[in-house]
Nucleic acid binder design. Structure first.
Lengths: 240, 240
DNA sequence: AAGTGGTCTAGACCACGCA
DNA sequence: GCGTGGTCTAGACCACTTG
């Protein structure tokens, strides 16, 4: 009598592999067995093995590399991002001693959409700057942020884009402006296809979406931003 | 000359379907075409269609139901959860007029792990209560929270579990205790397999993990909790 | 019984990295 | 050229829902 003990699934293979990594049997930087090897080992189809590996990938344990193999991530301990009314990316990273970089990958002048109108208390005819900023830590893409400012408040902002390094540096240097965080809204979601390209992540890695409104020191809203941050690379901390 | 315009992929089918839903061509509560129909429509294998639908599912647009079809979600606008030093789940939901419920699904007395020791400033020999609480809004599971308290602070806590409805209600009624949020840490991640069972979600839906420490009014830490919340059902708001 | 989604097998071709 | 992962086809069996 043959007992089919086959609620064996992609999920069980995934758990087995995660165990191997957690126990240190397969170490960070090493490869897990190839898909074909795993097929033989578990006597299953390659498709099933691939499902298992997909789960490992989404959970952040491994990253497959075409032509090479599937490597266990040297998981960088998630960066702490301390949120307060005064927080800036650059300063935050520097206090943690993390190498960082910001790139302006796109900017435009446009009419505000409904969200932007409401958050910035703008008329539908008041133009805004819309900037897309890609931020790196340790040479890896961490987040992409869309920041929106009323054009009126930051005249000729584009003049300062040539040597872009820190958004808040520009605001401070050229406009004597230090925005203050009014409120933020967090949500876990999946990246858009565009975001996956910029962040160089698979489309199933969860990201944290942070929607914020920043105020001018005198009180009115001056910046509306939506950041999409790799969930596995950052933890946001709020102190009360 | 035949032009292969076939970077057609599961992702493109997914985008097509998302468009149909966004434009209202397929409305909430309705079914999208069956897998076999989509196979014919796009002249692709069922496997490809299933990948596309998997993406829709993860993004929260649809939920497949075996034997019936794949229904467009009546997307409940994400609940706002306002985080402050005084926040409680029950009160938060009631101010928004949302029907809610809490179930204690597991409890134990145990020695604290390293995280818990550190967060609660406990000796490794001081026992803790560990509670798993499942919370519902509008009859749908929203979050699962593991709360840890030092046994010493809440003697005979289990006596009050019979008619469990609100954790903070018990603390207030029987211990005259109103914990105050010290800090919280957010991260986007994927659910564990256990969490998927409790929350009744597929394993690829992103969740937001909120790790918090709450203090006794006189200042020392009294509760360490880890909440896993459906990303598509809740937005956390922080006011500064 | 027919249709639906859930899971698996078997096998193909491609793009990439490496020796 | 070979092995790797990425993608797709073709077809099978199952569990569930509905008529």
């Amino acid at each position: 009598m043959i007992i089919r003990e086959e609620p064996l699934q992609h999920l069980e293979i995934a758990e087995y592999l995660i165990n191997q990594v957690q126990k240190g049997i397969i170490k960070a930087g090493q490869k897990i067995p190839s898909e074909n090897d795993l097929c033989e080992q578990f006597h299953v189809n390659r498709h099933v093995v691939r499902q298992a590996i997909a789960r490992l990938t989404n959970l952040g344990w491994v990253t497959p590399q075409q032509g090479k193999g599937c490597y266990v991530n040297c998981l960088p301990k998630p960066i702490l991002y301390v949120l307060s009314s005064q927080t800036r990316f650059t300063e935050n990273m520097e206090t943690q001693g993390v190498s960082h970089e910001s790139k302006l990958i796109h900017w435009e002048i446009d009419l505000p959409d409904l969200n932007e109108q409401e958050s910035l208390q703008l008329d539908e005819r008041e133009y805004v700057y819309r900037l897309d900023i890609l931020r790196y830590i340790n040479e890896q893409p961490l987040s992409i942020t869309t920041s929106v400012f009323p054009c009126l408040e930051l005249p000729r902002l584009e003049q300062h884009f040539d040597h872009f390094d820190s958004l808040y540096g520009i605001l401070l240097d050229h406009y004597q402006l230090r925005p203050i965080r009014s409120h933020s809204m967090f949500q876990a979601c999946l990246p858009t296809l565009k975001d996956t390209e910029h962040l160089k992540i698979p489309e199933n890695i969860p990201i944290i979406r942070i929607e914020s409104v920043m105020n001018h020191p005198s009180g009115f809203p001056i910046e509306y931003s939506v950041a999409r941050v790799r969930g596995d690379m950052q933890k946001c901390v709020i102190e009360f």
